[in-house]
Design a protein around this nucleic acid. Structure first.
Lengths: 110, 110
DNA sequence: TTCATTATCAACCATATGGTTGACTATATC
DNA sequence: GATATAGTCAACCATATGGTTGATAATGAA
């Protein structure tokens, strides 16, 4: 839990590429081989494999061997960590509106 | 709404750096000048200013002139867009569990 | 065995990124 | 006016990143 912060930026960096974003979206529809993930992309298989490696490194997916294929599956943990962070800091807005509200009330009492 | 996808990876890329992640966290505690944001960092002001530029470009903050300072404020829109995406794809896990549940039930009826 | 398919790896290339320094603008203060 | 402060900009540098090609390994199919 403590080093959540440390891995967070690698998760965001992994998501910070349109190709990899597409891969995650495709994986949400079910497990895929590396070739499956590469198919819709205008890119060599080796290139796609490197992207899969980045996502795996960031903990966003797992890759396991089955015959001569590698089955990729989303790993929810990393995505959940990202969700928690974004959740917390996107909530700041309503928090600050609440604070403003409070301030106005107290100002009204003045 | 349509080009949400297109800007999403620039938001994630902007968040994919520990320095900028810290800046966002600091901004959640209130508006800050560029110098404020730079202060805790082991970096020149110019360097910090570039990071602020990246965050601004991604739509994560706004920068406006006040005297000789620039006041930085979080812009919730980009963060909310990121939240929506992460929300949707981190929900995949429970969705798939539901699907599995459904499949098992239907298999039982077989 | 032989050939095809799936995937990785290493080497390489062009460009992007994170950082610096130095010059500059604009505002504030003396 | 002179000087200090806040910030940006341009140029530069080292490294990271996204992509390629070619070789290789491992499995599947003939």
């Amino acid at each position: 839990m403590v080093d959540n912060e440390r891995q967070l930026d690698s998760v965001f960096r992994a998501l910070g590429d349109p190709t990899r974003l597409r891969m995650i979206e495709q994986l949400a529809r079910g497990d895929q081989t590396v070739s499956d993930l590469a198919a819709p992309l205008d890119m060599t298989l080796a290139g796609a494999s490197k992207h899969v490696g980045v996502l795996e490194q960031a903990g966003l997916l797992t890759r396991e061997k089955r015959g001569r294929e590698r089955i990729c599956a989303l790993n929810p943990d990393a995505l959940l960590a990202a969700r928690d962070w974004v959740e917390r800091y996107s909530a700041f807005w309503s928090q600050r509106l609440d604070a403003l509200d409070q301030a106005l009330k107290e100002d009204g009492d003045d």
